[in-house]
Design a protein around this nucleic acid. Structure first.
Lengths: 338, 338
DNA sequence: CTGAAAGCGCTTACAG
DNA sequence: CTGAAAGCGCTTACAG
């Protein structure tokens, strides 16, 4: 148990120089002769020295650490939603390419976020914050570079990346209309004001409008955006008479729905067409493969990191609001109505 | 931009005491009069002070930080495998309940792991390390509390948690045999010596043996443990004449396989029975719902945290090797052969 | 080009 | 019960 850490002092002693000099070669600062440099570097190698981040942080008041805060919205919605994993791994990979480490934090409602200050985090990426919540207020008070994902915050000073949810909602619905469907149900997460699902819902209504199809509130089914949610909504959807298609505002719900439908002997797309939203990797392997409004989840994560870095380095970024494009991915869960 | 951090000095000044006293009330150490305590606490509140972890770490040489290191085994295998998300979120939740934060690290092959020392990590949880690799050697050198998940390392001094893969491989196969299948293919990840897939493969052979069914190497199909892997193996599986069932050593492969089979008009379980391994949440929503050998992924994550803590606190744990049970979860992807 | 010294924000003996 | 001081391992002016 070599519990003694090798410190800069040891390196200095070993190389026969001062710790200031070691520090200078470590950071490439100051002027150091080539001979001294190689001397010090040899000592570093020999002792297998690596500088203490804790000490550096204390001086620099930086940590090369960011947090990604994922909503702890009940177990079902988080742990079992592959969407977050695709997003989080993209953020991690992006951060790593900038020598940033990422803290994964599942935020419970009562989280104080004091760790952000305590650990001197360089920034935080927040997924799915809701306007007007306590938690959001606490985050804003932190006064640290922050990027919000899928959050729809009205404050224009905030950095946000989101996708064109309304447009996507419209496209997804239009796709079904284009296939001849006129009676289209919407399977959506809770329609919170200014939430992601609401935006997609608005797109849905818009498409209906443009096509001259009357909006029927009873075709809108709210269910948690999860496989369970979709699955247990199948019963309600099945009861909707005359409906030939369902637009789900998330792939997880769509996949759950197809499963629930399958249980009841309703075949997709034969009996009912289904379109999802998100383009989870998994959708390609559903039966049938899921037609969906695709967003670039990985790109979203990378964009968040880029925006965060812009703030960390310049204090600002050219644009504070990045709205990523979405596009239809036609697979086989929606069919043309004869 | 109140960029000035509030420090213990500010609190001391505000409360009219020394910083040592503030520190003492912060940590509940030493003897402090009740009056002083409330004085200090008021100052802390008033200034919204929270102590710098960086400074504490420097003194304590601890960080209340652990890393979970996920294998960067090519994009496909990591980012798109829901298994890791279920595991990682369980680890995060477990860690959080002990006031530990978790660093998520996607390990590239050339990772030096120097960050573990640099950040004074209290411990690391490593998923899927392989015996004899460079990376493993570097991790072992770190000399920091470590728990290996799904790693099958022969060194008995190492802390590991894994599931009874061999037994599970046997059970899954027996389940199919019990349903009347005699010609059972195995869809497996690369059969590395002492790897998870090999263990499950050994179980498969054992079940065959016990049932007096001859082992046929050509029924063993290797493919990456991913949905793609499973899907593209469908062609090879379809060519296997006389085969009535497939045992896949991972749910992702099983789901991919069912998808690929679907593309070719082969219905599960009518034409072919499929059994998976892992019990991903997602399997419940496959079409048909996946019969599988279930492991408690969340329990595995929590157990890893528990073992890590035992090391951190006592330097040892009662047992170094936790082998979790698995059990058959019968759903509808495997049918009885008439 | 190199080093002595101060300081980052804490904790911890040690006096008093 | 309370405080002065040393020290954790670095970086950063500042002398020389």
């Amino acid at each position: 148990m070599s519990d003694m850490r090798v410190t800069i002092k040891d390196v200095a002693r070993c190389a026969g120089v001062s710790i200031a000099t070691v520090s200078n070669v470590l950071n490439g600062t100051g002027r150091v002769s080539a001979d001294t440099i190689s001397l010090v570097q040899r000592a570093i190698k020999a002792l297998d020295f690596s500088p203490s981040q804790a000490a550096r942080n204390l001086k620099a008041k930086k940590s090369r650490l960011i947090a990604v805060i994922v909503p702890f919205a009940g177990r079902g919605v988080l742990h079992e939603n592959p969407f977050y994993w695709e997003l989080v791994t993209a953020i991690e990979a992006g951060a790593r390419s900038y020598q940033l480490h990422v803290l994964l934090v599942g935020a419970e409602p009562e989280e104080s976020f004091s760790f952000v200050k305590e650990r001197h985090l360089d920034g935080v990426i927040v997924i799915g914050a809701s306007e007007g919540t306590e938690a959001l207020a606490r985050i804003l008070q932190l006064n640290v570079p922050t990027v919000f994902l899928d959050s729809y915050l009205s404050d224009a000073a905030l950095y946000q990346v989101l996708v064109d949810d309304e447009w996507g909602g419209c496209e997804g619905t239009k796709h079904l209309i284009g296939l001849g469907h006129r009676s289209i149900a919407l399977l959506t997460g809770e329609l919170r004001p200014r939430g992601v699902h609401e935006a997609r819902y608005i797109g849905y209504r818009k498409a209906l409008d443009e096509a001259g199809i009357g909006y029927r509130p009873n075709l809108v089914i709210e269910a948690p955006p999860s496989m369970e949610g979709g699955s247990s909504a199948a019963a309600r959807i099945a009861e909707l008479i005359g409906v030939t298609a369902v637009f789900a505002t998330s792939d997880v719900a769509a996949i759950g729905l197809m499963s629930g439908l399958g249980e009841r002997g309703i075949a997709v797309p034969r009996d009912l067409s289904v379109v999802g939203f998100d383009d989870l990797h998994l959708g390609r392997f559903a039966s049938p493969p899921l037609t969906t409004v695709a967003q670039d989840i990985g790109g979203k994560g990378r964009e968040a990191v880029r925006l965060l870095l812009a703030q960390m380095e310049n204090g600002r970024a050219p644009s504070r609001l990045e709205r990523l494009k979405v596009e239809m991915k036609v697979r086989r869960s929606a069919r043309r109505l004869e």
